[in-house]
Design a protein around this nucleic acid. Structure first.
Lengths: 306, 306
DNA sequence: GAGCATCATAAGCATCGCTTATCGCTCGGT
DNA sequence: ACCGAGCGATAAGCGATGCTTATGATGCTC
């Protein structure tokens, strides 16, 4: 007996309609039909009477349903007890933040992990993408927040969220008068940027979104978002910065403008080494797949990376 | 949580050695290693401490083991209750025997099914392979015993057993003086045989085993094993017959001789229409995979057909 | 240092669980 | 009586899974 098929069977009983039950289970109706046929074949009995108006359970199906519920309840209870034992045992999770993505979603993920695993000591440092990547490769970190894409094929990265890149311009700059910035308006403008080696993938992705036809005129590097914005406040350069960070920093003399569609974006991800995932890192990653208990939506907005 | 992985985990705990546990579970050691790694990844915890001398459970593993046992026990109990409900509801199973394979294994299979499903009415007829095949195709039978191979691609056949083909010779025949019959000794001998259309696959298979280089000299057909043996007793023909049947019939004036290796054989199988397997047929087929409760061997001698 | 026992990794393959496309059937509305 | 909607089933295809064999890495014993 397969627990997934039992779950499908229970949901079917609640809906008495394959199409609706399949929708609740987030699979196509033929898949549910096939899976429940398999369950019937395994048991060697009809459980479900099908018809054009939907379906009902056979007498054996009624018995099977009660047993399915009991088995599933026991399995859930077991999982809860095992989870509790894991939480109680504690341990240490070595984590790296990235400077450019503090706050918001990242802090929520970590806060929830701490809440659900109070005996786990989260030891965190804040770096930048390339430094965090190096820490992962060396085994220093169990997981690390990064700005993808990563060029290291041995690392994997779960995208947690995406935010818009804005153009930061000096207050008196002609571009400050535009409501939306066309790509050609920034071609040739002197710009500051983080050093490419801080996050080569992020750098390349940003340049190709904002300066797709060339015209990227790099005046100099600044090490992080805050220094980028201060450079812009100086009056003669522009910079692309993540919306969340830019708005949080609020540097005087800087105007933030959105681009004309397609809006350039930058991702935040949680990277890990798939061949060396510690159990606690595994739990952190698994939590990304589960909606929190109070979530109104059954579907997690954080899509697992395939 | 997957019940199969839980079962693997429980067996590993009983052996504390991946190699031995894998053997008990009838799978290769790397498969067990992989499956239990997956279980650990799903739970986000180490359950097993591995080492060159074998393994032990971690503290969380001990908790997980107790939970696994409870879940598996509940699932087994559920399966038993569902099975009981199915048996109680009864029904009818339409079955066909083949004349040439009565007794022994076939009767054991059906007797056990009747014992385990006392409310099921087994309605059986005895025919021959081709007749039984026709009954399956027409939907008259849920399952039918046959002599494979079958040439009908829409039917499936589980091989239940194999028996040796013997040469039946007249008592005074020169071949009666041989202890083992070489193939060349029967080439050219006048022989009787069942009609090919009674079971074309069985016929062809028999001929190619006994007369691999030709020399099959069919004098006439007889309808079944008993008539074949009577014809042999008449003094001038030989016949190939299944050992069990031939020994059971004990026709005077007939000597039964074995062949020189490779021994020719004939199979007995249970055929069914895979697209139209009734639940009761499914239960009969499933029983072939389970050892009876009193069996000393955990491994069923009836291998499922792939 | 060699050999053995133990578990893990790598690569390959058959099967599984899903998908989309579509079919067959029933029922209700016109 | 016909058409469209709703319902579940079948067919074909594909990515993922669970196994296999081959082999590697490690530790222990002699």
């Amino acid at each position: 007996m397969d627990l997934r098929r039992l779950r499908y069977f229970v949901v079917l009983d609640e809906e008495l309609n394959f199409t609706r039950a399949a929708r609740r289970l987030h699979l196509a109706q033929p898949a549910l039909s096939q899976q429940l046929r398999t369950l019937e074949r395994e048991l060697g009995a009809r459980l479900i009477e099908r018809g054009p108006g939907g379906c009902t359970l056979t007498p054996v199906g009624v018995v099977a349903l009660a047993e399915a519920r009991a088995v599933l309840a026991r399995a859930d209870s077991a999982r809860s007890r095992i989870d509790a034992a894991i939480r109680e045992q504690g341990g240490r999770l070595h984590l790296a933040y990235t400077r450019s993505a503090r706050g918001g979603l990242v802090d929520a993920v970590v806060a929830r992990f701490r809440r659900e695993n109070p005996n786990v000591e989260v030891i965190a440092e804040t770096g930048w993408t390339a430094l965090n990547v190096a820490g992962l490769l060396s085994g220093k970190f169990d997981a690390a927040f990064v700005r993808p894409p990563l060029y290291e094929p041995e690392l994997r990265c779960r995208i947690l969220g995406t935010e818009e890149l804005l153009l930061a311009v000096p207050a008196g700059h002609p571009l400050a008068g535009l409501r939306r910035i066309p790509r050609e308006a920034v071609a040739g403008e002197p710009a500051v940027m983080w050093p490419r080696e801080n996050g080569p993938g992020m750098f390349d992705r940003t340049v190709e979104q904002i300066w797709p036809d060339g015209g990227f005129t790099l005046l100099r590097h600044e090490p992080d978002d805050e220094q980028l914005l201060r450079a812009v406040a100086g009056g003669s350069v522009v910079a692309a910065v993540p919306a969340g960070r830019a708005r949080a920093l609020r540097v005087p003399g800087v105007r933030l403008r959105r681009f004309v569609a397609p809006l350039p974006t930058i991702d935040i991800g949680l990277a890990f080494h798939p061949r060396r995932v510690s159990p606690l890192a595994q739990r952190l990653l698994s939590a990304l797949d589960d909606p929190p208990p109070d979530s109104a939506s059954a579907q997690s907005p954080l899509a697992p990376q395939k």
